[in-house]
Design a protein around this nucleic acid. Structure first.
Lengths: 230, 230
DNA sequence: TCTCATGCCGATACACTGTATTTAATTATT
DNA sequence: AATAATTAAATACAGTGTATCGGCATGAGA
């Protein structure tokens, strides 16, 4: 035995904390989706045994919550500017962008109440931007309506993106050709309006579509803020 | 051995089909949530071995898709009446009601493109109701915007419902007391607008809140239909 | 410095999952 | 009636989240 093959000294256990655990989990999820996140793999990435994690995390769901909150740090802009409409619009777009960077977020969005510090800060910023523009109930409804639209639209966008990715087809032809299934369905003649939509619909990019729907919703909110309920 | 303990004649294998499988899966999910649905349990409920199912279903995800489509049969009303706005409103409310009956649907809503016959029929009905009221792109955007709001709002409602159910608290006190966690967060003073909202927000029932946001979105759609884009 | 106690880390264990594969049984066909 | 084809069942595998247990290393007390 030489110095070269002398066994490594027993590695001191790397100190862990939630931050490192969450970062490892996010890295795994970014690479392989949510289903690639297992406590064993997260622990392995930190050179630890699986049970180590339970000193910092009570359950896997809690880890997911922490992941979601961590991404909310990317969503909250450093500084707020613009009127309430700009604030809400930017919040929606940043949420969408964060989800495009971390597709697994789509699976979690809206799935559980978000009570982490970053998520609360995001909500706080939205509420603050609307503060005083109408009675509290209206303000709450406004924020919730916009964010309901956002999460719904983002989820659908990611769902479609995954579907077309799975078939490996160009966006244009995706619907028309998503398996013989949809084609056959449309061929039955039971869905004429849908068939027309699939056939004649122009290709619009996802961001524009998201932005347009968002603007509609913001228009609606603007109308309610101007004319608060009796 | 008497006639009494004579072994049962070997039970003929019960003939299966997708319908029965999906029904069993839905029953399990209704009772214990999505996570209670395992192929083994579904098969057991049909007196079959787990592998039997693979003759009718390629994967568990496909089973989920079939479950979602099955519930869409409850969403599609027997007969359509009213103008486009009524059609879209009813569709949203029926989706919400179906989700309240089958809470697991909230976990799946918007998660994957819905291409089953019932889901297509639901979409078809919506498109048909808007047909001709504007150019096709506007009509599509309208339907998608409303359904994005619906899925987002429904998911949040179910998420909150589960959270308050978990804490076993009355709706009124839920936010104020969801663990020491939220209280501590609000006590930091970093979230004044949020604190005010939690403190002063009146208790509104979920259905009214859903309906109000939906009406806002429908107002927005109405405005765009009246004035199609240049 | 030696002993004892405490807390933490890793290993083991359990009950379960989705699904591939291999074997057995049953049906159909010649 | 014998063989071929189809179908069900049993077994197997690799993985999961998490409870429990055993040992080791570190700290305190003497």
């Amino acid at each position: 035995m030489t110095v070269w093959d002398r066994p490594e000294p027993p590695t001191r256990p790397v100190p862990l904390d939630r931050e490192r655990i969450v970062a490892a989990a996010i890295a795994l999820a970014d690479e392989g989706g949510l289903e690639a996140v297992s406590l064993r793999k997260v622990a392995a990435r930190l050179d630890a045994g699986p049970m180590r994690l339970y000193g910092y995390i009570a359950t896997k769901e809690e880890l997911f919550d922490l992941m979601v909150d961590e991404v909310h740090a990317e969503i909250l802009p450093e500084e707020q500017f613009g009127d309430w409409r700009e604030v809400l619009r930017i919040r929606a777009h940043r949420t969408r962008q964060a989800t495009l960077r971390h597709e697994w977020l789509a699976d979690l969005l809206g799935g559980r109440p978000t009570l982490g510090p970053n998520a609360l800060a995001v909500t706080e910023a939205a509420l603050a931007a609307l503060d005083g523009l109408a009675d509290l109930d209206t303000v709450l409804r406004a924020v919730e309506t916009v964010s309901a639209y956002s999460t719904g639209a983002i989820r659908r966008e990611i769902a479609n993106l995954r579907a077309e990715r799975a078939t490996g087809l160009s966006k244009r032809d995706w619907q028309r050709a998503s398996g013989p299934h949809l084609r056959k369905m449309l061929a039955t003649g039971r869905f004429p309006a849908l068939a027309k939509a699939v056939h004649d619909g122009t290709e619009v990019d996802a961001e524009a579509s998201f932005a347009t729907g968002l603007d509609w919703v913001l228009d609606a909110v603007a109308a309610k803020l101007a004319r608060p309920p009796a």
